[in-house]
Design a protein around this nucleic acid. Sequence first.
DNA 1: AAATCACGCAACCGCGACACA
DNA 2: CTGTGTCGCGGTTGCGTGATT
Length: 381
Amino acid sequence: MGRPPCCEKTGVKKGPWTPEEDIILVSYIQEHGPGNWRNIPTNTGLLRCSKSCRLRWTNYLRPGIKRGNFTEHEEKMIIHLQALLGNRWAAIASYLPQRTDNDIKNYWNTHLKKKLNNNKKVEGHDDNQEGTSASSSSSQSKISKGQWERRLQTDIHTAKQALCDALSLDTTPNNNNNSNNPPPHDQEQQPSSVQTSTTYASSAENIAKLLQNWMKNSPKSTSSSSSKITQMSSLNNNLSIGAVSSSSPSEGTVNVTPGQGLDSLFSFNSSNNSDVSQSVSVDEGGNFSTPENHNNNNNNNSGIFQVESKPNLPDFKPENGNFQVESKQNMETQQVPLTMLEKWLLDDANAQAEQEDQLMGIGMGMGMGMGMTLAETTDLF
DNA sequence: AAATCACGCAACCGCGACACA
DNA sequence: CTGTGTCGCGGTTGCGTGATT
């Protein structure tokens, strides 16, 4: 007897999410933190299965997500990481902050795979393989283990070299790679910010865009939507996006960590707007503004969204229950692995031969070839 | 202008891993 | 140790939209 599918229940809604559902989900997660997906549908009244909620959050609503416009650097990173890791999109995504595995997977399937195949055809050795170490495994049975290891070593070496080239494209002393070739709007909004700042500023931007699109695309539902927002406003006082400060989650005002130079008040007041779709604007920093609160940031707590910027880092204590996943993903996967990656590449230049000997000695096939992440593999060095 | 095609993306599905009782 | 429940990942699908005929 198998496990019952989580979405088998009748009355579970499928298909695209509505902005109302998004807001309900964001509101709930903001209050309780991500996790306990099983409880979310029952606690929020969303007619969605837990899986769907988690997916929607991780792939779309989660703070720090950058969408579309893959930069050339990101593209190269994906290509090389795919060569290294195979179709392990979650692992690849961990090296591309602000990108979701789904996004990367889609981009690979729709753009890069085609691109690489075309390149191969041009080079005249299209053997119907995808050119990855993972896909090349089909030929492994034809070669001896020693040959396979050596080939893998060569692949790794080639990939590392290429990855090094890719990173060196825009390698600057600029502390991290998170901001490597960000799209223009990101560059504008985050000239000299720490990486968490980028994350949360863009998170605000994500939600801002979401709502802006919502209001733009469904003016007919504005009134009902507004009422829902108002309803949630009373429920949650201030729906806020970003990391919750340990000091004030219960007060409904949330501290986020935007760029150090971004010290604006992110607020949105819709309660007095009969025509919200015309009056809401979002600036490059992801800040909501209306004609009213352009002149009056003191919106007397009537705003739905109110994210107060603070230069201090948020408290990511798990007991706060808020955005612990983000703290994990953004803090760890953005900073550590990329730093390690760089370190790996830099160190590699100095001790490449030695490391590869060591690599072979400890069994490369049990590291990169057996499901370890790049970061894990670097631990071997 | 209408029909068809191709593409991109969001979401779904199934399976494996993991945690816990 | 085993069974059960939950979560996360990767493959796939289906729909919306723009391009082409």
